[in-house]
Structure formats: C-alpha cells, structure tokens
Write a protein that binds this DNA or RNA. Sequence first.
DNA 1: CTGAAAGCGCTTACAG
DNA 2: CTGAAAGCGCTTACAG
Lengths: 356, 356
Amino acid sequence: MAPPQKRKTKRAATLADVGRAAGVSAMAVSAVMNNAQTSSRIATATRQRILEAAQRLRYRPNAAARALAARRMNTLGVATVVEGQDLNQYFLEVFNGVMATAAVRNQNVTVFTLHDWRNDVDRLPGFCDGRIDGLILVGPTFTPEGLKVLPEHTPSVALHSNISLPNSVNLETDEDHGAFEAVSHLIKQGHRRILHIAGPSGLVGAERRARGYERALREHNLPVDPSMKLTAGYSSQAGSAALKEWFSTGHRKAPDAIFCANDYLASGCLEVLGHQGLRVPDDVSIVGFDDTLVARATLPQLTTVRQPLREMGGRAVEILLEQIDAHLAGSEHSHPHSIVFPTELIQRASVAHRRG
Amino acid sequence: MAPPQKRKTKRAATLADVGRAAGVSAMAVSAVMNNAQTSSRIATATRQRILEAAQRLRYRPNAAARALAARRMNTLGVATVVEGQDLNQYFLEVFNGVMATAAVRNQNVTVFTLHDWRNDVDRLPGFCDGRIDGLILVGPTFTPEGLKVLPEHTPSVALHSNISLPNSVNLETDEDHGAFEAVSHLIKQGHRRILHIAGPSGLVGAERRARGYERALREHNLPVDPSMKLTAGYSSQAGSAALKEWFSTGHRKAPDAIFCANDYLASGCLEVLGHQGLRVPDDVSIVGFDDTLVARATLPQLTTVRQPLREMGGRAVEILLEQIDAHLAGSEHSHPHSIVFPTELIQRASVAHRRG
DNA sequence: CTGAAAGCGCTTACAG
DNA sequence: CTGAAAGCGCTTACAG
C-alpha cells in the first residue's frame, strides 16, 4: 500500500529522504545506490529496505550534486561547427557512433556548435566548466593561436584535426590512400580525363585527397592537368557551381569521370550533369568521398570512399573515457598521438566502364 | 607581467581563489561574475580588480556547483528514438532548430537516444536527475502506461506526439491538410491513379496523411481504391520494398503518381521506378513529405510537403524555457495544450503534368 | 559492517 | 555597498 502523499511534493526525493524512510543514514543509501565497493556488504535486509524506499520515493540521485562531489559528470561534450544552417552528414555519421558507444558506457553527451573554428573557439573553454568531463572535437581547424584557448582541465580527443593538438589524441583516416584507390579505380575502368573537385584549400583533408588524386594519375602515367582540378567548398551547391563554371569556361567536352572530395560535391555534380543531359554513369562516372547518407540518397547511388566515421566516433568515446579516468586518477596517461583508420572504396552505381 | 606560477595547478580556479587574489570575498566575485541584480553596485574599482583576477586565473564558474545551488543547469535535454542505426533526417531538422535557438538563449543541449518508445521509456526518468532543466521529446509514441513514467519534476515539450501528454505542450503540424494539398496538386496536374505509400499504421501522423490523401480523392470525385494504398515503414528501403511488391502482385500498369508519407519513402520509390525504366516525372510523378535533406538530395529533387521542423525545434526551446522559468518560480504557468504549425507544398522537379 | 563529519564550488537570503 | 553563514545533494575518507 502506498503511503498517503504528504502534499504535492514539488521537489525530488533526496538521499536524506530515502534514508529517513528506510531508517538508515544517507550514506548507507548512497552506498547501496552506487553499489559501491565501500561497504559492499550492507546487510541484505537493510539493502532491501533501502532499495524499496528509493523506489517508492522514485529517488534519482541528483546529477549536479553527484558531479560536484565526485568531480565527474558522466557526460561528454561534442563540439562541431555548423556551416550555414545545418549540421552536416559528416558530423552526423560521427555523432551516431558517439551516441551508440556513449550509451553502452553510460555517458550522456551534450553537443556544442560553433560558427567557425577561427573566431568562435573562445567559447570552447566556457563549455569546460564542469558540465562535461571531456570533449570530442569533430573536424576542428585550429590556428596556432586558437590552440592556446584549448581547455586545460578537460581531456579531449579530436577527429580529423588539421593540426596536432597538445594533450589530445587525433583520429584520422588515410585520405591520401583513399583518394588514390578511387582514382586508380576510375583509371582501370578506362577513364582518362578525370576531373577533381577538391575541397576548400587550406584544409588538410582536402589537400590529402587532392594529393592522392594526383599520385594516382602519375602512377598510371597520366598527365596532371591543372585545369582539371577545381577547388570548391564542401557543399552540394559548391560542387554544382564549380562544375557549371568549368563547363562555361571553354570546356565543352565533358570529362570521362569526376572525383569529388566529398559526397555533397558529388551530388552537386550529379545535378549539373543531369541538366546538361549527360547521364551518370553512362556518359560520365562520378566518385564521392566519405560515404555519408548522401551517397545512398542520390540516384544513381554513389561509388565513394568510405571513412569509418561511425567507428571513429565510437572509438573517440572510448579513448576519451580512458583519458578522463587517467586524469581523475592523477596519472598522466600517455597515448599515441594519432590513430589512422583505413578507408575503403565502396562501389555503387555511379561508375561504369568507359564506353567506346 | 604574469605572476609566477605556483606549480602546475591541476585544478581549475574557484570563486575563493579569485576572491583571495582580488582581496575580496568569494561572494563579491560571484556577484560580479553574474552581473547580479543583488549588489549590482560593487565599487567600480573593486569590480575591475575582480574581473582582472578572474581573467588572470582563467576562472570559470563550475557548472555543477552552480546548478546545485541555483537548481538550474541551463541545459536542455532532447530525447529521440534511433531506429536501426541512425538518427534520421526528421530528427536532424528539428535538432538544428533546437541548437540554433538554444545557442542564442545560452542553453546547452544534451541528447538522449532511446531504442524505442515502448520498452525503453523507463530510461527517461533517469535523465531527469538534475542534469537537464527540461526535456524535448521528438516524435514520441507513448502507450498510456508509458505516459506514467514521464518525469514529474521536469518540464517537457513534445513534437508530433501521438498522444496528449499531461503537463506538456505538444507541437504538431496540419498533416492532414498538407497531404490534402499535395494530392490535390497531383490531381490538378491531371493525375488520376494516385498510389499512396503510407507510413506505419498506428502512427497518428501517418494516419493523418492517409486521411488527407483520401479526402483529396473524394473531394475531386475520384475513387478511393484500397489497392492503391500501401502501408510501409518510414524508410527508403520500406518504400522500395512496398512499391516492388505492388508491382509484383499483378499491378503491371504504373500509377500516374505516387504520394509518399515521407521523403525517405519517396526516394525508395525513385529507385524502384528507375530500375523499371520508368522516368520521374515524365512517366510517374512523385510527392514526398517533410522536406528533409533527402528531398533535395534525390534526382530529380522532390516535390514535397514541408513541415517547418527547424522552426518547431526552435519554438520548442522557447516554450520549454518559459515552462522551466515558471516551474522554478513555483507558478503553474499554463499553456495551450498543443500548437499546430502550417504545412506548405514545396514544388520541385518530381511532379509533371500528366502526358497524353 | 555502518554512521558522523567535512567538503565539492557555488548562490541565496540575511546581517551589518 | 559588502561580508559571514547556511545550504544545495551528494561522496569520500575516517572513525567506531
């Protein structure tokens, strides 16, 4: 039988409330609730009584109080930049991985969005005020000065950082090799005039992809023609704009194939080609990069270079947790400075053997 | 000149540290840092000294401590279900809106993912343990029992809830009308045999869309043929599977048009139609629903019924914040129980006038 | 095996 | 206009 409600209890039950209800000290309740190694041997009967009282009062340990006392919030921060209006698919893939393993590790995650990594990084320290135990930086592009604002008391892990971060592990992929494989594949399919739509110049990743592209051409004794390399942003609009302009500046003959620095760019190309009456892959083959949802949403679906983004997100959580534990223990757990994940060419429908 | 570092200070500066450095009480520091109405008139010189000390020590108020004392964390929770592996585009649109206005309102947001709204809801109360001040439920489908576990001490707002939540505001859209408009548009374009691929039965939203579809047919004196309504999941695969099966069960003649209950379904249809050698929109017109990124990623881009998901996400934050303030003030701020947002037909390339 | 005490870092009344 | 005190709800040593 439920005990009569005193009066509409506005506030949640506390440890003391439960203790009172069970006739024990708050400390005993704490021990039971945490299944602590300390006093792991509270009399079974007492434990029962406590558990019962806790359930009856719907007791939930207060996270803030717990964090304050234990110096640990059990929540991880994820920081990223939202360009234009939206979180992009790259982030989303990573985030899915983060969420999945955060869930099994019993961690909450809060996400912080910045406008850019240059002028907005000074907001980062503000996030590291005890509300998170560690920070995952997704695709940060720091300037050397920006680096200085990096939180000192908060362990961090970075994905695809453009610069090596002090006290932080960097997870990256072998983008050069991924690009090399993709372009080699195109060449083996008989394509010769291969256009590359590169990502923003200055971005390490974009440059690695461009490097892989050129290396593949050279290794197959194909000319590296500067006019066949376009630099764009990383968005679909940037892709279609770049390709449109290329066509409008004297290039009347379509390329055999296009290697894009990401899937968004590829989808932009798809659109332009469609408008031109060029068919993919019959007339022009296309390869993207990342293997985000975009690659599966286009028609035809994109052949693309997969980065194991989801896995990387999960791994980031694992590593960060190790660092947090070490940090709390006071030991300066040292880690490999960066971990490189392999890429993989995913063949779908946007590449065909060259006709004729 | 920076003062000599005592020793590698492992822990962040506290209010007391700053007070000591500035020669004032911790309380004075607190007042200054918060720009509090209390003691808003701390002598300018003192204030300067405090600010300076705080900056020098890189002082950051500890969030947990602050939350514990002020009973407010300044972070909002967003709960959703991840079906299969991924957060879907519907959620992402909402989430973008949430993040945008949370940023201007100076709120953090932490996201909770559940496996489903039936067996997994009991995890919800565990999130409401002081780490968030309020909860936004994105697309919850509660059973009446599930409703009971809903957090008592935590204000909440729901988007597209399937059931009316006690003490919660529900934001929805006029899906029936949206569907009606979409199908009417198809009819006006000369289409007669209009297939509807409906969302999961039992989902209020899916049923509203189906109702709008039927209403449009009837209002234009077209027959409502049960064999022209397919029930599917909400994924692209579900869409292609449903359409494939329809074709394989004796329906040799393609429909004039297909009205899909969401964009994913539409993209699935696009794929199947492509394989059948049917062209969109030349042979078959297609309309989606939601206007997620998917609608712009397909080729042709989808004509679709837009729900203002981003705006709704932003609005959810505003309303939740009001509720939190009221809750904290002890007043039982009462709100309209649900707010209905308008839908809008977005015309893109997947619909054409019927040939012949 | 269990409890009383101190403290985590802040804020909120309440005195001066 | 400013400081000393109490308390937010928990955990972590430390006594018994």
